[in-house]
Amino acid sequence: MREAILTAIDKNSKLSVSDLAIMLGSTEEEVATVIKQMEDETVICGYPTLINWDKVHCERVTALIEVKVTPQRGLGFDKIAERIYQFNEVQSVYLMSGGFDLTVIIEGKTMREVANFVSEKLAPMDAVLSTATHFVLKKYKEHGLPLVQPKQDERMLITP
């Protein structure tokens, strides 16, 4: 049931409990209970909305920063990752394999704001050895969903 619910709401968190119950051949009580459990266990961590900010006249800059760090004794990368993700500007932090350690995704109002964050907050941290900042020029797809106008239904209205 857990997996069925998660798959159903993964790309559409607007589905109501009653719709989910019908669609999954379950009862409203069961669906509600399982969802509550998963929220409590932070299997479900939130219900954000996927917004294409480019369409709203609201300046936003996204940057992806490759960060090399020195892991701290006994704490590995987790402690430093936590120090970084506490900042409000930080949207995502991932531990990476390969040539650098952390991917940090930052959102700011202007390029200057992002630059200031990197030079004043991120780069000076003791554990941070180096950073490389890449600005996002355009977003095409996020969370498995294309950020474009949905395609018109081109099928004929009636077919056998």
Binding site: R155, M156, L157, I158, T159, P160
Partner: peptide, 17 residues
Amino acid sequence: FDIVSEMKDAISLGVGE
């Protein structure tokens, strides 16, 4: 189909694909 195609902005549950 001929009747339906006259009707603009109809929504359809009529396809077989």
